[in-house]
């Protein structure tokens, strides 16, 4: 026989829920306290770690990259703030800001040649030469990190992958997929022609024409009409 719900039954139900809620709150609180303690001890340990390995982090690009990966995994960004403990601890901020300025300089200096699209390796070479032999070693990872900070400034900073090369873009604008296809086609020899494009990409003449026009307009391609083999309209991709 089923008992019908009575007043007492209802009251008991309310009490039970109340109990559970109280219990839940306590558990939440302990958990929070526990987590806070964990975070605090984590931060402390990370600080300790950073401090004791300070010199390695500063001098060794590989170690620095690993440190950054570790920080990223735990959701810490050592470059997030200029006033944070990281800057005081490691002098990180200055390091990357300085690097950022050098990157901007390099990109501006070569913009006339490459139309604002600079090969990452070339950039690395340029910046290293500029820094001289007495400065701390820098790695590609450092460059990418500094560039990602430059993005905050606007101005279209980005890193594009074309074929096996990475290119740093310092002028606003997006490369269309068509432009990308043509650039990667040209990357081995340094140039391509309408004929090569047609054979490799199987595009219609109009599409090729449009893409080439856009690249020319952006200063990413130059025309060369003196191809010794006689193919007309050969054009070159500029890279430094």
């Amino acid at each position: 026989m089923r008992r019908r719900p009575g007043l007492q039954g209802l009251q008991r139900g309310v009490e039970t829920r109340e109990h559970f809620r109280n219990l839940g709150d306590t558990v939440k609180e302990t958990k929070l306290a526990h987590l806070q303690a964990q975070v605090a001890s984590f931060k402390e340990n990370l600080e300790k770690f950073a401090l004791s390995h300070r010199d390695e982090i500063r001098k060794d690009p590989v170690f620095r990259a690993q440190f950054h990966t570790m920080c990223a995994n735990t959701g810490v960004d050592p470059l997030a703030s200029n006033k944070g403990m990281w800057v005081q601890l490691l002098g990180f901020g200055d390091f990357y800001y300085e690097l950022g300025v050098q990157i901007v300089e390099a990109c501006l200096a070569t913009r006339g040649v490459n139309g604002g699209l600079m090969d990452l390796d070339a950039l690395s070479l340029f910046v290293r030469r500029r820094r001289g032999s007495r400065a701390e070693e820098i790695s590609t990872d450092d460059l990418l990190r500094a560039i990602s900070k430059l993005k905050t400034l606007g101005g279209g900073w980005s890193v594009t992958k074309i074929g096996s090369r990475r290119l740093v873009r310092s002028v606003p604008g997006e490369l269309s997929t068509d432009s990308n296809a043509v650039l990667s086609l040209a990357q081995d020899k340094g140039f391509t022609s309408e004929q090569i494009m047609q054979q490799a990409l199987n595009w219609e003449a109009v599409r090729i024409h449009h893409t080439v026009e856009a690249l020319l307009r952006d200063g990413l391609a130059l025309i060369d009409d003196q191809d010794p083999s006689g193919a007309c309209g050969t054009w070159h991709w500029v890279s430094s």
């Binding site: 040649v113 020319l216 307009r217 200063g219 130059l222 025309i223 060369d224 003196q226 070159h236």
Partner: peptide
Amino acid sequence: FFYTYPPYFTLQPVKETRQKQSAL
């Protein structure tokens, strides 16, 4: 460097590129 770069011996059609070429 541009002296060994073939397209610099062709007049470039885009105005800005032409100006750079001309200056060099």
